[in-house]
């Protein structure tokens, strides 16, 4: 495993369209639930242990077995009740796949897979293992909304990055948990949900003017 390759996969500057998405943060800012560094931190933790865990598990499984992409993709569908979030996940999966294909020989996994399924396939093509795929997925569920928070709320970027650093051990724990689930039947894999992320995504999708796609 190449540590530098993992950094390439986890780099926020990877041109895969992630900057256009707030990970549900914009909707909760509008609802008044997220307004300062503390509430951003609570949002990030809640997202990490729910969507982040699911993303980490599916990235790990996809990395271990990219050929199982159809089953994994259907598993993500069953865990993503919001059509706006399914659309956002597939748009980001497609964009990531495009970036990935320019770097590594990525397996065939369909045109617009869910983002974690694409991430796992990229990790596999890059010679990384399931644990690394899971770490990149978990970390990404935190960094996306964190940078959106700086833009939406004009927060101190140093303080927001300190939140990301504080969540790093939790990202590691979740990734280890995720990697241990490889081989489990898809229906048994974790499905930790966050009702306000689903509800917020649907409300957000009806807005006429918004800064982020999701």
């Amino acid at each position: 495993m190449s540590l530098a390759t993992l950094l390439v996969l986890g780099d926020g500057r990877l041109p895969s369209g992630g900057h256009a998405h707030s990970g549900g943060l914009e909707a909760q800012v509008a609802a008044g639930r997220v307004h300062d560094v503390t509430s951003v931190g609570e949002f990030l933790l809640g997202r990490l242990v729910t969507s982040g865990l699911v993303a980490a598990v599916f990235a790990a499984c996809s990395c271990a077995q990219p050929a199982a992409f159809r089953e994994l993709d259907a598993g993500m569908d069953a865990r993503t009740p919001s059509p706006a979030l399914r659309k956002a996940s597939r748009a980001q999966g497609r964009a990531l796949l495009r970036a990935g294909r320019a770097m590594w020989p990525v397996a065939t996994i369909g045109r617009d897979p869910h983002h974690p399924v694409a991430l796992g396939a990229l990790a596999n093509a890059a010679g990384l293992g399931p644990l690394e795929a899971a770490v990149a997925a978990a970390h990404g569920t935190v960094t996306g909304p964190a940078s959106a928070a700086v833009r939406l709320l004009g927060l101190d970027p140093y303080e927001v990055h300190a939140l990301i650093a504080r969540l790093a051990p939790e990202c590691d724990r979740i990734a280890a948990d995720a990697a241990s689930r490889i081989g489990d039947p898809v229906d048994d894999l974790p499905a930790a949900g966050a009702p306000l992320l689903d509800i917020g995504a649907e409300l957000h999708a009806t807005w006429e003017v918004r800064l982020f796609a999701s």
Binding site: E42, L44, T50, A191
Partner: peptide, 21 residues
């Protein structure tokens, strides 16, 4: 599988009462 969902609340579920959940 049409719908697969888990929800954890209470003191052993980090972030459960926060603005994402």
């Amino acid at each position: 599988a049409l719908y697969r969902h888990e929800l954890a609340i209470g003191p052993s579920a980090p972030g459960w009462s926060g603005p994402a959940v």
